[in-house]
Design a protein around this nucleic acid. Structure first.
Lengths: 207, 207
DNA sequence: ATGTAATGTAAGTACCTACTTACATTTTGA
DNA sequence: TCAAAATGTAAGTAGGTACTTACATTACAT
């Protein structure tokens, strides 16, 4: 067995087990067993459980996904762009589900590692989305609102949806059309709001 | 020391420690020490670490908060009602921050306990919000959309905001006006959307 | 084919954990 | 005041953990 293959098998087992049982709950013995190697081999490769955990964080990056998600925004309509962004964002979360679980669970206890990976991804994503909003605002195609907060709102509702369905309820969001329906519904409200379209502005009238 | 007082001190210490270090990371010794009692006292009260954890889940309920949040929705305008709901929801999350952290971390590993508490709260909250949307839709004050998905969207974006600020970045959302600003921004987009108000419907036109 | 790098076997170390037992001390309530 | 209830002290159990050491075996490249 090639050294890199062994390394990878250990890393994969570790990701799965840690995502299920947490950092403390996933023992080196069990990780090694799941990887089909001896515990000693694990330690020869990574030296320490802590270092193994660090390798997980280092090897599992969100960043490549971002580049896949972002292109061609200019070529499609506003709602189409948001739907595509939302869908791809959810799919990239789904692909990295065990990793998302780990971050969710160990966030509080290992903030440095987490922030480096997750924070980077989120900042990039939010920043790019905000820039997109800004450019449309400058063209007059969107009204005036905070691009930053709008980005956080958009990503936040998608992330919560993912969290509720996949992590809490353990539902596969890619089955059927539920994900597409949800994204379409979210985007529709995000674009058009919840007020009737024919009505004028009813807002800011007390009782 | 009254028996109930001791019990409560142990429960409080346990909540804090478990929220910081997780269920496995919080040892009974440390919990007892933080509560100012002996480890033996802890076991005399709760018998088992697992039972202690169960008591945490049982004692710390979200439900009372719901009753505080929900009244008087009919008396105020749509946007006002949403802002109030959003603000009180965030404040009730903030009050239970350690508990929210625990659920966030241990969700995957202790699904039964979690779902009982968190699920109840969320279902109640989402259900009530959905009913509110529906009633306004019937009055013609809101356009046609899925009340359920809209509720999830609304709560989801607020929860993500809380998660990012308070749990990840450890920022106090109640300081200054940042929370009110954020809620106002979210509600504004949720109510009016992101399209310009003067423009007609540009939607569903390809390129 | 053979030397080297990678892995396995087996035994063990030092430490920590949840939890227990026996007995002494304090606190509380009537 | 005084018995009962609650807590403390001290020592220990059984099991698990990350990690180590010494030595044997396999796989691979030249």
């Amino acid at each position: 067995m090639k050294i890199t293959a062994t390394r990878q098998k250990i890393l994969d087992s570790a990701v799965l087990l840690v995502s299920e049982k947490g950092y403390l709950g996933a023992t080196t013995r069990e990780i090694a067993k799941k990887a089909g190697v001896t515990e000693l081999t694990l330690f020869r490769h990574f030296g320490t459980k802590e270092k193994l955990f660090g390798s997980i964080m280092g090897s599992n990056s969100f960043l490549p996904a971002l580049r896949e998600i972002l292109p061609d925004l200019e070529e499609m309509s506003y709602a189409e762009a948001l739907e595509m962004l939302g869908t791809r964002f959810l799919l990239s979360l789904k692909e990295r589900k065990p990793f998302v679980k780990i971050m969710q669970s160990e966030m509080t206890r290992y903030p440095a590692e987490m922030r480096r990976v997750y924070g980077h991804f989120m900042d990039d994503m939010l920043g790019t989305l905000a820039l997109y909003f800004e450019s449309l605002q400058r063209k007059g195609q969107l009204r005036d609102f905070s691009p930053t907060m709008a980005s956080r709102m958009f990503m936040g509702m998608l992330f919560s949806y993912f969290r509720t369905e996949e992590i809490m309820r353990n539902v596969d969001i890619t089955r059927g059309k539920r994900m597409n329906k949800a994204v379409a519904e979210f985007v529709d409200i995000f674009v058009h709001g919840t007020l009737p379209r024919t009505n004028g502005t009813v807002r800011r009238k007390r009782s």
